[in-house]
């Protein structure tokens, strides 16, 4: 494998690489072993601690524990994300169109809204929803997710429209389509398709951000973990946390894989290609998605 940093290795370099790889692997294994030993020393692997999932203390049913985590906790997380995502997409589409219209009385407010909400922490907007708008916790979480992500979706869609070859719009005008027709039937469909990976990546961010509801008091997955900890006692926090974190990671990894798949499929099919789902760097079509910044 040749890269910008080194040539395709010869037999000697390959041997060195293999030796280095084994040493590095051993160092990582040692680190992992130390971590496991540390866990063992603190009694994390005692079966009694994990009994919370099959034979919980305090005369509780294991099914209730799972129900509380998966149905109530995860359910609430997914509910917030499922309500917020389509709303944010729809509003983002309106803002994107607003931003590129030539009428200033439409475009300037759109720019203002996008720039303001892009620069504010989501959790602050959720708090604003609870305290200032008197929303319920679910509504406040949805509010925070929607106002932030609509700004990001708008920027992604705008980047997609801007990245299209100028000939697309010119040809549409030449055959006599109006501005609105051009936008709706020529530019937007291509932009959405081109930006699909970025849009899916942003959905991962939206789902991740729903966990901010924990801070303002929404009873989502992480809050379930904490409530179970409060009920059963601090010694069960590690098993509870392990499952809670695993659920988040599995869902997000699946969605991220989907984005990468869409990106591969898209760049093979469409001539212009699609924007990268992960690397928004390097001259290519750039989606301003948060996937690459960690917002």
């Amino acid at each position: 494998m040749s890269s910008v940093l080194y040539d395709t290795p010869g037999p000697r370099a390959r041997r060195r690489e293999r030796i280095g790889s084994v040493i590095g692997g051993l160092a990582l294994l040692a680190l992992l072993g130390f971590g496991a030993w540390q866990l063992q020393k603190n009694g994390i692997f005692e079966a009694e601690r994990w009994s919370i999932y099959f034979d919980p203390p305090k005369n509780q049913e294991a099914a209730d524990v799972w129900n509380f985590l998966l149905v109530e906790g995860l359910g609430a997380t997914l509910r917030a994300a499922a309500i917020a995502a389509p709303l944010a997409l729809a509003l983002g589409l309106i803002l994107a169109v607003g931003r590129i219209t030539p009428q200033r009385w439409i475009s300037w407010p759109s720019i203002f809204v996008i720039e303001i909400f892009r620069g504010l922490p989501v959790v602050l907007m959720m708090l604003f929803g609870v305290l200032a708008l008197n929303l319920s916790f679910l509504e406040a979480v949805v509010f925070g997710l929607v106002v932030y992500n609509m700004a990001i979706f708008a920027e992604i869609l705008r980047a997609g429209i801007v990245s299209l070859p100028a000939g697309q719009a010119e040809a549409a005008y030449a055959v006599g389509l109006t501005r609105t027709q051009t936008l709706l039937s020529i530019l937007l469909p291509q932009a959405v398709r081109r930006m699909l990976p970025s849009l899916v990546s942003q959905l991962v961010v939206l789902l991740k951000d729903s966990s901010l509801g924990f801070i303002i008091g929404y009873a989502e997955l992480l809050r379930s973990v904490q409530n179970l900890r409060d009920f059963f006692g601090i010694r069960y926090v590690v098993p509870l946390f392990a499952v809670g974190a695993a659920i988040y990671i599995i869902i997000n990894l699946t969605l991220s894989r989907l984005a990468v798949y869409l990106e591969r499929r898209g760049s093979a099919k469409t001539a212009g290609g699609v924007a990268a789902a992960k690397e928004a760097v390097g001259g290519q079509v750039q989606g301003p998605d948060d996937r690459s910044t960690g917002a």
Binding site: K208, D209, S211, I215, V237, V238, N252, S256, G294
Partner: peptide, 15 residues
Amino acid sequence: RNTPLTIVFFFFIFV
């Protein structure tokens, strides 16, 4: 990248 930041905080504060 696939872990919410809140989870990371929860880990360092409570776990």
